[in-house]
């Protein structure tokens, strides 16, 4: 069998009697109609190139950076820690001595809790 006769045979061979039945066609179209709701929406037909998106992102970044509040600059020479400690010591000394000490308050609260438990017959 030569090349030409084989090609001729390939082009003529498929069985043209095979066709889609009316029922199959109806099934297809029913599914198509059902899928109408989930169909992808038509696109606008134009696209944004990558370089354009990049430029837009840069422009937005520059704009927002200009709008941002200025931060307090960090001093070049740090303050002396010795003077800070002295100032803190003075502040602590100035606190009123009569202020309740938290530990004492906690002990009182604990005693109250113990007496309540004893009253209800619960052993701590």
């Amino acid at each position: 069998m030569n090349k030409e006769s084989l090609q001729q045979l390939l082009r003529s061979a498929p069985d043209t009697r095979v066709s889609v039945s009316a029922r199959q066609h109806q099934d297809i179209m029913r599914e198509v109609r059902l899928s109408n709701a989930t169909r992808k929406q038509p696109s606008t037909g134009w696209t944004i190139p990558a370089w354009g998106a990049g430029m837009a992102a840069t422009a937005m970044a520059v704009f927002y950076m200009a709008q941002a509040p200025q931060l307090t600059p960090i001093p070049a020479v740090p303050e002396k820690t010795g003077s800070s400690w002295a100032a803190l010591e003075q502040k602590l000394a100035a606190l009123p001595q009569e202020a309740a000490i938290p530990e004492t308050e906690l002990e009182k609260e604990l005693e109250r809790l113990k007496s309540d438990l004893a009253r209800f017959g619960i052993k701590s």
Partner: peptide, 12 residues
Amino acid sequence: QEAFVAAYRYLP
């Protein structure tokens, strides 16, 4: 069937 349904869905 699925080919035609997909074709319709992605035709746009």
